[in-house]
């Protein structure tokens, strides 16, 4: 069994069948790409893996633990889902610090290092509301990776990033893979998917099919 498994999962949203009896296994240490047209359910798939959304039928298992009401959110998941989340009137560092304090696993220096890694200046006193889209995206990536999480779920992580940042993020993800991390990504840019992923799945007519590379 992989690190994340979906068994016979079905999900309907607003009368639209997103998934119908889907089976999917993600193995540890892989970079897996999920592709599909807009509204096909990529984000919902990620949300089910994180415990935010329950499937109508079937089970989602993470590290051999079935996700259910009592055991809902998997541990050690770094996520970027839907859009960058931030507190607009705080600086980038303050935003990350607030999140880091919840688990209190990392110190200020580690937060600063993560910021530099994604291309942000930790000492920048600019409020996030004045950040460019790309900077907000980098901040979101920083929050997803800063606590050295084991599994990274990154929905459209390459959005709004400039050419150099895309390159740097790709290298970073490949380094994470070498460290044994499991990474799930979606991207509208097939280049990102081709350059990074060991496996690619396409959401097609409520099914998740493996795409031959």
């Amino acid at each position: 069994m992989g690190i994340i498994s979906l068994e016979n999962v079905s999900k309907t949203y607003m009368g639209n069948i997103l998934f119908d009896s889907v089976d999917l296994t993600i193995n540890q240490g892989e970079i897996v790409g999920i592709v599909g047209p807009n509204g096909s359910g990529k984000s919902v798939l990620f949300k089910m893996m994180c415990g935010f959304v329950f499937p109508d039928e079937g089970t989602v298992t993470v590290r051999n633990n079935k996700l259910h009401k009592k055991n809902r959110f998997p541990k050690d998941f770094g996520i970027l889902i839907d859009r960058p989340g931030y507190i607009a009137n705080k600086t980038g560092f303050e935003n990350l610090k607030q999140l880091a304090l919840i688990q209190d696993k990392i110190n200020d220096k580690e937060i600063e290092e993560t910021m530099i890694k994604v291309g942000l200046q930790p000492k920048n006193q600019q409020k996030v509301k004045n950040y460019s889209l790309g900077m907000k995206q980098k901040l979101a990536i920083a929050q997803a990776i800063m606590e050295n999480q084991d599994v990274l779920i990154l929905d459209e992580a390459f959005n709004a990033l400039d050419h150099d940042s895309v390159k740097s993020l790709r290298n970073m993800l490949l380094d994470f893979k070498k460290e044994g991390k499991t990474i799930l990504i979606t991207s509208h840019n097939s280049e990102d998917i081709d350059a990074l992923c060991d496996k690619v799945y396409r959401i097609n007519q409520s099914k998740v099919d493996l795409v031959q590379k």
């Binding site: 994180c50 415990g51 935010f52 959110f73 541990k75 998941f77 996520i79 889902i81 839907d82 859009r83 960058p84 989340g85 931030y86 507190i87 935003n95 999140l99 919840i102 688990q103 929050q143 606590e147």
Partner: peptide, 11 residues
């Protein structure tokens, strides 16, 4: 928007 990122950390 930040609630997702907080909730997963609280578990």
């Amino acid at each position: 928007e930040i609630s997702h990122y907080k909730i997963i950390r609280y578990g």
